[in-house]
């Protein structure tokens, strides 16, 4: 199956993080890049940690790999000892051409998916992830936009309508797609509030800016506050799309 999209699932494998309930089923139609990583302090050489922990980490990853495969996913796995977890995750995204990173939290069977859409940029990738992960599931997708004062209803309809068309193009049943619009709220708070009624969230990564530098990526903030799993769709990287 070549149309499976690569989704990165980073797990801090030696710190008691495991694959939460429902996550393997959630990714049944994806190509899972299972990253077990262990962050070590500067004082320790990475090889030193490997000598001691490799066996235990490998054992756990074996177990997790089986869980994903049993659910129907194809799996590729990596085990990395690192001083800098973020650098490792970024490298994996680039090397495996991952469309999205899953922040793994427990969930039941997925029935309702919330897809916050910020703007026209990155809509294509967002749609591809939603369609490929949830297209064959019996799930309802809600496209959600938090508009500011200057945006007219027409603009929003164009945006969300375009997104819905895209999903249909990728083979989703249009009857499962709904839209929802809120106005004059802090987008972040609004997304977290609305998400409560959903099983999972799929949202785009934001371009880095001063605000994201100070407050962190909105997607990460949502992931921290929302209790279910969050797919963070990666923005297009310069070199990442060559061999699609």
């Amino acid at each position: 199956m070549t149309d499976r999209l690569s989704i990165l699932v980073p797990i801090r494998v030696l710190e008691g993080e495991s694959i939460p309930e429902g996550v393997p089923e959630l990714l049944a139609h994806a190509h899972v890049v299972l990253l077990g990583y262990h962050v070590i302090p500067e004082q320790t050489a990475a090889g030193q940690a490997r000598m001691q922990f490799e066996d235990r980490a490998t054992e756990r990853l074996d177990e997790y790999e089986e869980m994903f495969e049993d659910a129907g996913a194809t799996v590729e796995r990596r085990l990395v000892f690192t001083h800098n977890g973020q650098k490792t995750i970024d490298r994996m995204i680039a090397e495996h051409d991952c469309m999205a990173v899953l922040v793994p939290n427990a969930t039941g069977p997925v029935e309702d998916v919330l897809v916050p859409v910020r703007g026209a940029i990155g809509v294509d990738r967002l749609a591809r992830v939603v369609a490929s992960v949830f297209g064959n599931m019996d799930a309802d997708v809600t496209l959600y936009h938090v508009a500011d004062e200057d945006t007219t209803d027409d603009d929003i309809q164009t945006l969300l309508g375009g997104m819905a068309d895209r999903l249909a193009e990728f083979g989703m049943d249009p009857s499962t797609i709904e839209t929802r619009i809120d106005r004059d709220q802090n987008p972040l708070d609004a997304i977290v509030d609305v998400a409560d009624a959903f099983d999972t969230v799929v949202m785009g990564e934001t371009d880095p800016s001063l605000a994201t530098f100070v407050f962190g990526m909105p997607a990460d903030q949502v992931a921290n506050r929302f209790l279910g799993p969050v797919f963070v769709v990666q923005r297009e990287r310069a070199a990442a799309d060559e061999d699609e």
Partner: peptide, 13 residues
Amino acid sequence: AVVHDDNVELERT
């Protein structure tokens, strides 16, 4: 990274 067999890697940071 430094790559050992069995896909175990040591990240360069």
